[in-house]
Nucleic acid binder design. Sequence first.
DNA 1: CGGCCTTTTGACTCTGGTCAAAACATGTGG
DNA 2: CCACATGTTTTGACCAGAGTCAAAAGGCCG
Lengths: 274, 274
Amino acid sequence: MDNRMDGTGSLQSARCTGSDLLRWIGLGHEVGPRSDQIVFPMRRVRTGTLVTHEGAPFESLYFISAGTFKCVHTDPDGYELVQGFLARGDVIGLDGLSDGVYGGDAVALEDATVAMASFRELLNAARQVPSLEQLIYLASGREIRRKNMTLEVMAAVGAEVRLARFLLQLVARQAEQGYSSRRMVLRMSRRDIASHLGIAHETVSRSLTALADWGYIEVRHREIDILDLDGLERFKRVTRGPAIKPPGGRGGATRRARVLSLAGRSEGSAVSAV
Amino acid sequence: MDNRMDGTGSLQSARCTGSDLLRWIGLGHEVGPRSDQIVFPMRRVRTGTLVTHEGAPFESLYFISAGTFKCVHTDPDGYELVQGFLARGDVIGLDGLSDGVYGGDAVALEDATVAMASFRELLNAARQVPSLEQLIYLASGREIRRKNMTLEVMAAVGAEVRLARFLLQLVARQAEQGYSSRRMVLRMSRRDIASHLGIAHETVSRSLTALADWGYIEVRHREIDILDLDGLERFKRVTRGPAIKPPGGRGGATRRARVLSLAGRSEGSAVSAV
DNA sequence: CGGCCTTTTGACTCTGGTCAAAACATGTGG
DNA sequence: CCACATGTTTTGACCAGAGTCAAAAGGCCG
């Protein structure tokens, strides 16, 4: 019942059911004959293509079946802010609920597939099918929760800590979807990450190699392996104190003298002020 | 029709209707006989009292009729993060939609009044009364939009700019509710603001006096007057460049040499890189 | 192969975090 | 109503994390 069109998108018939939506978002147990009846058109989205345009009238929600998106808000001065990254199970366009206009562009970072749901129709369907109603509320709540998590990321004082939190969030979401909780591929550029984290893109680069030097992760281009999950989890909690960074450098004293000095500094001291 | 119990809360009879909710949130035009039939209990909330407890099971939404709240998330290490401030027209508890648990404490910053709406009952009512359904979606969308605005605030590089954006947001929300768009009273402590903005509370203090020295605002305790709205609006757009701060100092060359040097530096140069 | 973007690394400067202490406010109890 | 105690706000001084500018190295695509 799941293999017909669960969005891994083999068919180009381009249709899916309400049940599929429920499954993508993690409400598989709510699937029933009613939700099977509701169908939605699917759209393939090529890399770089926009699914929603900032300022365009809100009409539909887009349920991501496959692929990754970034949501970019451009303020009147042309300054861009990456509000977040979305993937399978997420919904694009929810911010349109507020004033009938999309709050940002949703750009595909890789070829993707989404189900398009006219909000009006979805609402009508939801009145008949409680699970679909639940779907919308769940999606909204998740979006809010997600934003709060982003705030936590940006609240971190140190750049390395922000990055650590970001990576852990990414990998956690992957794991929820059944993917690896160790390896990940960054679909977005360092610049995008920088924007989303509120730091300079050079700093993203530096922090990435720093985390690698600490022995927490391994970085190959956009492929990242988490070597020491526990360590990273501990490290991400460092909230204040420009001082003591937890590490204990990895095997091969790899890169720079700076690394070594820091690794040295870490010895004999616990965590920062708690 | 609005003066019966619109929440300014004279009666302790402690009830309001769905129509009241609609009015508070700005959906007054949707009011009808149907929404008049739905009643909700109201609760007076004393300063410092919690309306929702982080981790407590999500059962109700709370519609703010009067008063101000802060939403605080405490992470496992005890580090607190102020996720946002809510006031009349806002809804408390929406993040519970995601996983059935409140994501933070909602603390009253002053004596307040809220309408308590059991989510289950509200949902039933919404199925009968479309305007109430709309109410929930609007509230969710607004919450999301609000979070995105907070991200914009935190994305600002300079502390003074963050504060400027924060103040402008506050005053804009006041204006929406029909209050002054020049004067405001900060119900929250500098420490709360600091947490919400991701900066040290000392920096909030400094930035406040800086903005005052620039001539943008006047600060008296927690009472703030905006003296130069246009200037502030221009200033808040300064996104990069630790350098050039727009100002042109006010009358009395007040405080510090640092201020003067900055004011001097600003002369003869336009805005930052665009 | 050549242009263009992304990523990394370096060097320098400055903002803002931390530690400290004083000035203010607020509230409690005598 | 005042003295005391506690929390908030302001100011100062110092230093390091990170932003900016600059340039080179690495990838990607036509």
